[in-house]
């Protein structure tokens, strides 16, 4: 199974972290259900063109946080996770995205008031689209 993971080489986020976060997002959004067999470390390393060291690190972190589970000789599976944890992942990722947007705006020397205005405009456009 190929996973829809897209690595950005120019990002300041380390590759293992990108893999970790994108898998987390896929699990939290129910795109990967509990019990789904994940690709082996070696297969994912080949698909994403990174080393097994990087993938192992991502898998170990995910296992530690309870998102996945490795069964000796059987493989790595998506774990049953609490709704609370899923929600936390979703909220965190939305917050991070907003924070990044604000950071970008501030880099372009926008004021907080101007950023708020842009935000309202974007929201208004979405409301209209509904």
């Amino acid at each position: 199974m190929e996973l829809p993971i897209h690595l950005s080489k120019d990002s300041r986020e380390p590759i293992y972290h990108q893999v970790e976060n994108q898998l987390k997002a896929l699990i939290a959004a129910n795109h990967l259900h509990a019990g789904t067999l994940l690709p082996s470390i070696r297969v994912l390393a080949k698909d994403l063109e990174v080393s097994v060291i990087t993938i192992r690190r991502a898998y170990q972190n995910l296992e530690y946080q309870g998102f996945i589970q490795t069964l000796q000789g059987k493989g790595t599976f998506v774990a049953e996770i609490e709704k609370k944890l899923k929600n936390k992942v979703k909220t965190t990722s939305v917050y991070e995205t907003f924070e990044k947007a604000v950071e970008t705006a501030m880099n372009y020397d926008y004021t907080i008031e101007e950023i708020e205005e842009i935000f309202q405009e974007v929201l208004a456009a979405h409301k209209k689209g509904d």
Binding site: I15, E49, V50, S51
Partner: peptide, 27 residues
């Protein structure tokens, strides 16, 4: 090299340049 290797052992005209973990180079 991209799809298979974890490490790149680099030789130049017989000299060992180093043994690098792939992401150590690309990152």
């Amino acid at each position: 090299i991209k799809k298979l290797s974890d490490y790149l052992f680099v030789l130049r005209n017989g000299d060992m340049i180093g043994n690098f973990e792939k992401e150590n180079l690309t990152e």
